[in-house]
Design a protein around this nucleic acid. Structure first.
Length: 480
DNA sequence: CGTAAACAATATACATTGTTTACGGTGCAGTATT
């Protein structure tokens, strides 16, 4: 049967979207594949159709519990009951039960941390899988080295005669692609790379002499333009600050960051997706797995720490194909804090010495953590690297890591400070060529905020006084 | 590293200036505790 017929049979679609057919053909031929497709362009079909054709379970490695849960729920809603998320939401018994019946599932979602557990790894390696998928594969590069080291172990977990591996992401620089190939141990993968350019997004940029002026401009702009929108800033505290100011101006806004309860985060995200909330003021915790098509604006109150993150964040605008705008705000010295945060949580040399000493004295290095000498995150990262290389080499690896981070920050900064076309520079950064400049390009080429500058009407201000506002106030003010 | 808030000192009974201190992103798993 032709692929199109199979698509029709299993999903009821008459034709493929760009890239899907090529990717699926390669996978069915048993070839490792990297697919860079813009969000909302049907990435999940690339593994779902092969799952039905090959009729064996597909393993999907996913970065977030909430993402797995959404996908499983969605599948169940569409009548696919044979989907499961193998993660810490399951208690011991449930986990055991799922582990014993893995062959009965068609889609198995799992976190890298769960995947590398010996018991889980062995069980999965006994299973005959159709495909191994790494969703949001840029996380390998973005998180693996200094945050979630288990991302770097995925390749080691996979046995020699494994099924093809499919790495999915929306954007990746050549460096990220290299990390994906290397840490997934891919063998001459087929690569489908969609253009990173998003013609319907206009790139704005505003430079201010002081932070106060920046904030003033932001408040004024947001209160006179259309949402829905996301405002990215660097610290949790500042998300709360800005959100409060917007609330005072009568706008519907909420802050969002990793320090909030999972429940509250879920609730806020849901309100935003449903359109009951116009503005989300967030740290980089917000975004992955947020499927909202009509986001009109992305505003950066603080610069992101690299161009790949910037593209990822900006890419959340205008998924419906309609016009959207991304505005990057900068005030002198913003990069200093970004630089600090980049190096802050990495293990320092004193901790490396101490780790070494603990090992020499036959004390489990975990004690460092219990003695409050290192954070959990830093310990995990340090433990990973010290297990691989001698101390001096680890020191040098971390020095390089910091240098690399500083370089990425500088790359972002030089785009901000440059006088050139923003779109062109972004596209070039991903090693691509800009085919055609859209009419509304960027700050440099001339930007017209046009319809985004529609004045806010009274109804706009007052139409929403639902229960969510009360709930949001509770969350924001911490009163129940 | 840089900022801002909290605190202290000055020099005079209020407010300015100097000094110290706290703080800063991303998530998983699994266990102990509300």
């Amino acid at each position: 049967m032709q692929l199109e017929q199979l698509l029709q049979k299993h999903f009821g679609y008459p034709s493929f979207r760009p890239g899907q057919k090529e990717v699926i053909e390669q996978l069915l031929n048993g070839r490792d594949t990297i697919a860079l497709l813009p969000t909302g362009m049907g990435k999940s079909l690339c593994y779902q159709l092969p799952a039905y054709i090959l009729n064996k379970p597909v393993l999907i490695i996913s970065p977030l519990l909430s993402l797995m849960q959404d996908q499983v729920d969605q599948m169940k809603q569409f009548g696919e009951k044979r989907a499961v998320a193998l993660n810490s939401f399951l208690n011991r018994q449930q986990k055991q039960h799922v582990m014993n019946s893995l062959h009965n599932f068609r889609f198995i979602f799992i976190s890298p941390e769960m995947l590398v557990q010996p018991q889980v790894k062995n069980r999965l390696n006994q299973l005959e899988l159709a495909l191994i998928v790494v969703d949001e594969a840029h996380c390998i590069s973005q998180w693996g080295f200094d945050f979630r080291p288990d991302y770097l172990k995925i390749g080691d977990v996979l046995k020699e005669n494994r099924p093809p591996v499919l790495a999915l992401s929306a954007t990746a620089t050549e460096k990220v692609l290299e990390d994906i190939r290397r840490f997934l141990k891919m063998k001459e993968p087929f690569e489908y790379i969609h253009s990173v350019d998003r013609p319907n997004i206009r790139y704005g940029k505003k430079i201010f002499p002081s932070k106060e002026e920046k904030t003033q401009w932001l408040l004024n702009h947001v209160s006179h333009t259309q949402g829905p929108g996301i405002i990215y800033t660097r610290s949790r505290k500042r998300t709360d600050e800005i959100a409060s100011l917007l609330l005072e101006l009568g706008l519907s806004a909420s802050s969002y960051h990793g320090g909030k309860d999972a429940e509250d985060r879920q609730f806020i995200q849901q309100q935003f997706i449903e359109g009951a909330l116009d503005w989300i003021v967030a740290t980089n915790a917000f975004g992955m797995g947020v499927h909202k098509a009509d986001v009109r604006q992305i505003i950066h109150d603080t610069m992101p720490s690299n161009v790949a993150d910037y593209m990822q964040e900006v890419g959340r605008a205008g998924r419906d194909g309609k016009d959207a705008v991304a505005i990057l705000l900068y005030s002198d010295g913003d990069e200093e804090v970004v630089r600090f945060i980049a190096g802050e949580d990495l293990p320092n040399e004193a901790q490396m010495e101490l780790y070494d000493e603990y090992v020499r004295r036959n004390i489990h290095p975990k004690e460092m953590m219990h003695n409050g000498l290192i954070s959990e995150t830093s310990f995990r990262v340090l433990h990973y690297w010290m297990g691989l290389y001698p101390k001096e080499q680890v020191k040098s690896i971390f020095r390089q890591m910091v240098m690399e981070k500083y370089r990425s920050i500088n790359d972002m900064l030089s785009i901000i400070k440059s006088e050139g076309c923003i779109r062109e520079q972004l596209v070039h950064y991903f090693g691509q060529k800009l085919e055609r400049k859209p009419e509304h390009c960027c700050e440099h080429c001339g930007i017209d905020y046009g319809e985004f500058l529609l004045p806010r009407t009274e109804t706009h201000l007052k139409k929403k006084t639902f229960t969510w506002q009360i709930r949001l106030r509770q969350i924001l003010l911490g009163t129940d």
